[in-house]
Each structure stands twice: as C-alpha cells, then as structure tokens.
Amino acid sequence: MFNYTIKYTTENTYENPVFESYWQFMVTPETNSSQDLISSSYSVSDDNSIEKSINGYNFETTRIHTKKPFNNLTFEAIFKLNKSEISPIEPNPEFTVEDDYKAIEVLDFKVDFEAFLNATELTALPKVAVKLFEFETSKHILDNVKQLNTWVYDLITFKAGETTEDMLLETVLEKKEGVSSDFVHLFCAIARVNKVPARYVSGYLHQGDGFFGDSEMYAWAEVYIPNLGWIGFDPGNNILADHNHIKVAHGRDYKDCPPLKQIMYAYGEQESKFAVEVNYEQ
C-alpha cells in the first residue's frame, strides 16, 4: 500500500487586470479499484469561491468564477490517497488467442466501445501511417499491445518544452519526438485501427524511480482487452501502468480531459506556471 500526497499548484500573472474569468480544473484523482482518494483540499487567491462539479464525462472538476478584477491568481490543490500494488498481467488462460479476436468482432462489442474505437482529430493517423504497426493475430491481443507499447516508446523521443498537448499525429510522426500526450495519442490511434478500444488517461506520475515524466500532469493509455478488461499502458516509459500512476480522468484524447479549461478576457503580457509534486510513503 502506498500513501500518496499530491500537490497541484498554478500561478498566473497578468499585465492588465482580468475582470471576469472562469477556471475549470480537472486534477482530482478518481477513486477506482487500485486507488482510494482519502482527502482533497483546495485553495485559491483572493476570496474567490471554489465549486465542485461533475463534467459531461462524469469526472470531478473544480471551478472558480472570478468576478473582481485581478492581476494575479494562484490555485493549489492537495490530495491524499491510497494506492495499491498492481499485479502483473497475463492473458486469461481460459480463453484462446482466437477468442480474443472473435470478441472484438462482435457487433455489441463494437457498439459498447464505440467511443474508444474511432479516431478523433488528435488520434487520426495520416493515411500513409495506417499500416505502421499491425497486430499479429497469432498472438494474444495483450502481447500485441505490449509490443505496441515498446514500439511507440522506441519510435518517439521524449522532449518536454515548447510543444502543446494538441499536436496532430502527422507532426508527431514527422518529428518523432514529443511529450507524454503525443506518445499516448499515437499509441491509441494504432490500437484503434487494429480494432482494440483504447483511451487517453490523464493523471499524475510518481517520478521517484527515474521514469520520464514532467513536472506537470502526465498521460498514459488504457486498452480494453477482451476477457481481461481495461489495462493501463505507459508508452512514454515502456511499462504497464503501476502503483506510480495516479489516474484522474480518461477520454478519447487529450481534449476530453485537459487539466485546466479557462475562459477569460485578458490582454497584454501574461505568465502561467504549473507545478506538480507527487510523493508517497510506504
């Protein structure tokens, strides 16, 4: 059992006063079979009030609506949660390789997982790239996805910095470098053209063990494997998601679960800083 403390902070400065603004954070870890949110506390500068709400995809959001002019806004959220060890995953021995591929061809399956089977703008593969990575039907889907994980990891070089999360795959494939979301978009795109449901996961990565990550939020993927369920893969580190991955939300791509959505009318210079601290005690 890991006792996590996660701190998310952001500090924003504006040259000219911002008269009204909306901020919607999606940074609260969810509670699921491997993680249990114990407490969450939020604070914001001035006397702005904080509201909690559930968004269209059923994830918790934290909202601020500022009504008085400000030049500076800071927001801090602290979460405590318990995370359990995730045991290694092997194909379900009760089913054969053929069962896997039969399952993904069933109409009900296609309908139920429709959202995570189709390309979105950010997970659309350029035509030339559709056959970049084809599953070997002689192997279990799980093994194919593991290989895909490695393949993506080998193809793309991690490069934090200037890029944004909404890069098109065409650009990613051309540059062969990117941030965690780029790895995930490519990974999901390929899983989906191979008819396997895959979704984008936004969350926190505990960086203690020398993994690639960043000081902001992190992204990995979940794949629905017949007869096993949703399994987390981290193509940015070439591993399966484990006790270092704290999930916040999932969606079809980055656009379904950005950590922050902002609506404001500001002009002039502005600066935004984000920081994430993830620690645990065993």
């Binding site: 909306y22 968004n55 909202r63 959505k261 609506i263």
Partner: peptide, 22 residues
C-alpha cells in the same frame, strides 16, 4: 457551454451543461 463544448463560445453559459446534467 464553453466549459463543456466549444471553448470560444461567447454566447453560451459556462457550467450550463453540468447544471443540466444534474
């Protein structure tokens, strides 16, 4: 609702969809 759909909608109401969903 610019928080849920098109971000640059100036004619909507931030948070309207959550109010509806609830």
């Amino acid at each position: 609702d610019p928080l849920e759909f098109k971000k640059d909608s100036a004619i909507g109401v931030p948070g309207l969809f959550s109010a509806y969903k609830n």
